[in-house]
Each structure stands twice: as structure tokens, then as C-alpha cells.
């Protein structure tokens, strides 16, 4: 049997220290992803460091300038929080489309951001997978026609499976920051700087350091977003990953867009933000024709193969619909 050590941490520093002391150590919070991988033989931890025992990491706060989510807040708690619903509803709108109620009850904010690939090749230990084994190349990367699910953006020579999170897409459109703590200090990384495109040399897709832990996510309120929507198009209406999702946050004042956040799930190897489309929308009227132009800009550098070519057009259409939905959904009218 594969025995492992189980350590309860009382503080973030203790947790980092314990993790560094042993090879193949993992933090465990909700366990909704890690335990699955252990059962499938994908992860063989020598130690699990339980961070549920650390106090103060479950808070959801409104500081005036930001809404702050502690890393251990459950996905359900975050989705149902009045502070989120009133001030950053896109987080709630995206969260409730993810997984199932039972999984959301267990899953945490930090765990959601760190969740692993959901690709069948990742879960099939007999297959080559660049996200399971450094240096491996996924067979779908080299396959001429690709596969239906693969990403359109952030392609690389190792793994082109899309990032699975819904919540991260919503947070990305809101320009959220991840709060990281090391033994010495804390730092904040914008979510689009937190993730990086997969590389062949290692299996990571974040800039999280070995001696760091996610302690929370900060959602800035300075952009003044007052409308938002999340649209998740998928093969089953619940308990299914997206085929493509769209997240839009808009600051609309008397019909003019002062600021726009636009992101998408299951089109990028990491949660994907459309900055050029956001810039285009700034100062424009909130009209369908402007939304259509923004969507065109968003898809302009997509890199499809034959089997996922349809995703380019579908993405464009989903972004138009998401922006229209956002326009119709002022803060306080959804959930």
C-alpha cells in the first residue's frame, strides 16, 4: 500500500515548513481534486499537509476598495456570500456553473485556482501527458487535426488541454489578484500573471513558488463594474465542464462602457482574458454591434486545428451573447 504522512498545520508558515521538509508533499484543503488523483494513481504523495486547521483563511470581507476571499472559503460559501453577490456577482455567477453542489460544498477558492487538468490523457496513466510528467508531449499536441476540446490560445509543445476552472474565468474578468504568502512575506499577483502557459520543462502552470501558499483572492472594486454575466455552453446542463464559457463585466454609465472585463474558459490552456477587446469596448456605447466587433477582436489570434475549428466561431458568438447578457444584468439583479 502507498502509505503517506498526514500533518495538520496551525499557521501558513507551519504549513509551508512542513511541506518543504518532505518530498512529494501537498497541501490539502477540500480534497475534491487531489483525492481523486491519488485514487487514480496520478499523484503519490508522501505527505499531505492539511491546511483546514489554519484559522482565519475562511473569511470573506469587503474592505471598501476590494472584496477579499480567504483561500479556505468553500465555493458554496463564496457563491452564496452577500458581499460577493452585491459587489462581485461574476464570481458567484461563474462558481455556481461549476461542478455540482456537493463538490462546491467541499472545494475551496485556492483549490479551485490550483485544480489540475481534466483531460482524459492526464487521467490515463498509460498515456503520455506533459502535465503529469515533465518532458512528455501529449499525443493531441502532435496530432494533425487536434481534438474537439483542445484550446485555441496559449498553445505550446507540451499540453493544449484547456484550463477547467469557471471561477478563475470570472475572477480574471474582474482583474482579481491572488494573495500569496511565503515564510517571510506576502505578495500579490494579478490572476493573469499568476498562470503561465504550459512548458515542456515542468508540469506547472502557475508562478506559485515552492515556499508559497495561496491565502486569498482580492477583487478590486476600482474598475466600477456594475453589470456582469457568465455563460457556460456545454454538453450537459449541469455537472459538465464547459465547451466554451464567457465572462463579462461592464462598467456602464448612461449607455457608455467606461470599463470592460472579458474572459473565457475552455479556450485557453490557462484562463484567457481578451485585453484588446476590453480596450476596444472602453468608451464605446453598450450596443450589440460594438459587442460583435469586440468578439471579432477577441478571436483574431485563435489557433484552431481541424477538430476544434468550430470553437472559434462558437467563441465569437458566446462572447456576443455574454456581453448582451451582462448589459441586461446590473449588479443586484442576478442571484
Amino acid at each position: 500500500m502507498n502509505f503517506f504522512q498526514y500533518t495538520e498545520a496551525k499557521t501558513a508558515r507551519d504549513a509551508i515548513k512542513a511541506k518543504q521538509e518532505k518530498e512529494a508533499s501537498y497541501f490539502i484543503a477540500g480534497g475534491s481534486n487531489l483525492v481523486d488523483m491519488m485514487k487514480e494513481g496520478i499523484q503519490h504523495p508522501q505527505q499531505l499537509v492539511d491546511i483546514n486547521t489554519i484559522s482565519g483563511l475562511r473569511d470573506i470581507k469587503n474592505t471598501g476598495d476590494t472584496v477579499y476571499l480567504g483561500t479556505l472559503a468553500s465555493n458554496t460559501a463564496a457563491a452564496e456570500s452577500e458581499k460577493i453577490i452585491n459587489f462581485a456577482p461574476l464570481v458567484s455567477q461563474s462558481l455556481v456553473k461549476g461542478a455540482t453542489q456537493q463538490i462546491r460544498n467541499m472545494a475551496t477558492i485556492g483549490g479551485n485556482l490550483m485544480q489540475e487538468s481534466r483531460c482524459p490523457f492526464f487521467y490515463d496513466v498509460s498515456a503520455a501527458c506533459g502535465r503529469r510528467t515533465a518532458g512528455d508531449v501529449c499525443p493531441t499536441v502532435t496530432a494533425k487535426d487536434g481534438i474537439r476540446t483542445n484550446a485555441l490560445f496559449g498553445l505550446n509543445e507540451s499540453c493544449n488541454t484547456p484550463h477547467p476552472s469557471d471561477m478563475a474565468v470570472g475572477m480574471l474578468a474582474l482583474r482579481s489578484k491572488v494573495v500569496l504568502q511565503s515564510k517571510k512575506d506576502t505578495r500579490k499577483l494579478a490572476l493573469d500573471k499568476f498562470y503561465h502557459i504550459p512548458v515542456k520543462e515542468n508540469t506547472k502552470i502557475t508562478h506559485l513558488q515552492d515556499d508559497e501558499m495561496i491565502v486569498g483572492v482580492e477583487i478590486p472594486l476600482e474598475h466600477g463594474f456594475n453589470h456582469s454575466a457568465y455563460l457556460k455552453v456545454r454538453d450537459r446542463k449541469s455537472y459538465a465542464f464547459a465547451l466554451i464559457s464567457g465572462a463579462a463585466a461592464l462598467n456602464i454609465q448612461t449607455g457608455t462602457i467606461l470599463n470592460a472585463g472579458l474572459a473565457s474558459g475552455w479556450v485557453g490552456t490557462i484562463p484567457w482574458r481578451f485585453e484588446e477587446a476590453e480596450n476596444f469596448l472602453q468608451g464605446k456605447a453598450a450596443t450589440e454591434s460594438n459587442f460583435r466587433q469586440a468578439a471579432k477582436i477577441a478571436i483574431s489570434d485563435a489557433q484552431p486545428k481541424k477538430n476544434n475549428a468550430f470553437k472559434v466561431k462558437l467563441l465569437e458568438k458566446i462572447l456576443v451573447r455574454t456581453l448582451l447578457m451582462a448589459k441586461e444584468t446590473p449588479y443586484g439583479t442576478n442571484n
Partner: peptide, 21 residues
């Protein structure tokens, strides 16, 4: 289709209807 192995062989990947459908 390159080797005829099943790709979506779990209840998460094989999309049987749920209540919402």
C-alpha cells in the same frame, strides 16, 4: 480514432442527463 480507446469513460465525461437537462 487513432486507436479506438474510450476517452470519456467516467460519469463526469460521459454526459448522461441530470435533472437540469
Amino acid at each position: 480514432l487513432s486507436n479506438f480507446r474510450y476517452l470519456n469513460s467516467d460519469l463526469g465525461g460521459y454526459h448522461m442527463p441530470v435533472q437540469a437537462d
